[in-house]
Nucleic acid binder design. Structure first.
Lengths: 195, 195
DNA sequence: CATCTAATTAGAAATGTGTCTAATTAGCTG
DNA sequence: CAGCTAATTAGACACATTTCTAATTAGATG
């Protein structure tokens, strides 16, 4: 086994040898996320989060897609991390996330909220609409079924046009519907940000 | 995923996140070894080696079998390390060992050598004879074939009774013979110390 | 049982890693 | 282009890990 292969192996194991990074991978295995969202989920600052993401990227465990100002990281092991490709399934890794930190909504969402916490408007650009819809989806329990009036009622606490929100949520597969009954889908089934 | 499962996962990755420990695992994947032999192979002191072995053991990657005064460690992942069991084959891990450090024979062997480097006697106890025979086996190239007189000649540089040594080496499957031709076997085929 | 040997444990110095604040870069928005 | 936003980079400090020497433990040997 060559010098560089050992070095790659070492980078790989070192990347996984810290709780913050396991949790980061967990959240990324659920769906692609931006740095500030991850920082808020973990309760760390953005520079620290950025540092950890750099290590994960170096180990070939995550990818980065830059979209304007936003950096979308995703759990996507490369050939650099053959062990990861064969062993770490998205499903399993998603469980490493653990408890998210007290979810004060991140700045991006805050910008679209009134002081009373209601939505000012639905962001026009796809890349800003996505996190806002994700935040709305979190208003629903994963294991509960809802009838349409209930869905509307919940959404109306956040925005006057509940019908549009409902349609958008279904479009992104954050909610789904069958025979008039709605329920929330787990994040790994959402239409991915980057697709 | 529970608190303790994450903790176990973390112990596992941390155990693998240091070059010395990857190399230790490499040497152990070849065969069971004592602390002082490992220390000598890595070029570390015994306390340091002992410390690393403790971490590996805690992570469920190696086992320890005490035999009198000697502690035999072996690469033998437990259920504590499910990832290891499924992914880290003995064969592959053996390559992590890398270059052994300048092999000044360890104390145990030194005790059986004259000042000129010749063997004083063949240790009577199985557990001391084993490392001495391993040291003798290293006198032979892995990829070469030897005729019996050659084998005797090499062994006679170390001890007067080459015939007994030759028989012992074959018995432990450190050497093997077919139609009067001898060759050295890789360590993973030796009769294991602990069996 | 006195002594020797292999290993571990204690404790200290050196090195490495994680985290923060402050400064900087790069992209977007009016 | 002036100002704003998301992210990274720099630098400093705290915390954790590695490694050593010295002391201790536990088994073997005469």
């Amino acid at each position: 086994m060559t010098e560089t292969e050992i070095a790659a192996l070492l980078r790989f194991f070192k990347a996984l040898a810290h709780e913050s990074r396991l949790r980061l991978l967990g959240f990324l295995a659920q769906r692609a996320r931006t740095v500030q969202e991850l920082a808020s989920l973990l309760g760390l600052t953005e520079p620290t989060t950025s540092h950890h993401l750099g290590l994960l990227r170096n180990a070939g465990l995550v990818t980065l897609r830059v979209e304007g100002n936003l950096h979308w990281y995703d759990f996507e092991p490369s050939e650099l991390a053959p062990l990861a490709k064969s062993v770490l399934s998205r499903q399993n890794v998603a469980h490493w996330a653990g408890q998210a930190r007290a979810e004060k909504p991140d700045r991006l969402i805050q910008n679209y909220l009134e002081s009373d916490g209601r939505l000012r408007l639905i962001p026009a650009s796809r890349k800003k609409r996505y996190p806002v819809l994700a935040w709305l989806a979190a208003h629903f329990d994963l294991d509960r079924r809802y009838r349409e009036p209930e869905v509307n009622q919940i959404l109306q606490t956040r925005y006057w046009d509940s019908a549009t929100l409902r349609r958008e949520l279904v479009g992104y597969r954050m909610l789904t519907r069958e025979k008039g009954i709605y329920w929330r889908l787990p994040e790994e089934q959402w239409v991915r940000m980057d697709k």
